[in-house]
Amino acid sequence: MSAAGGRIAVVDDDVSVRRGLDRLLRSAGYEVETHASVHAFLASDALDAVSCLILDVRMPGPSGLDLQAVLATEGRRIPIVFITGHGDISMAVRAMKAGAADFLSKPFDADELFRAIELPSGVAPEGSPPPPR
């Protein structure tokens, strides 16, 4: 996809989540950038650089689903992994139908996340250590 290959963007309004995911993904060898809202993400130039989006559904301002819709209309096919603290089935179905790579309920296991990232994008972290077993 992108030149960077392993670059992942995390958009979540919660700082704990952002910091946790940033470290987890970096420990797996990904390049990570985090944004607190959809607006902040769109304002940055990350859109062209990332190969995968980890997106919170509910945030102040536009939601993750709103961003998915915008990207779809723009024809950008960035794999999106949705994460949510209070997901329900209807929301998940809507996201999957719109082409989401996966839909995870917080809190989620690291393997779950990595599977969700690797499956659609096939990106693997560069020189990543083997996942501990």
Partner: peptide, 24 residues
């Protein structure tokens, strides 16, 4: 639940990252 899930998510992610960092 959402309010609790946020820090829990952070904790879990951080903890699993730590395990990975320790393996190096």
């Amino acid at each position: 639940a959402h309010e609790l899930n946020q820090p829990l998510t952070g904790i879990l992610a951080n903890a699993q990252a730590a395990r990975r960092f320790l393996a190096v």
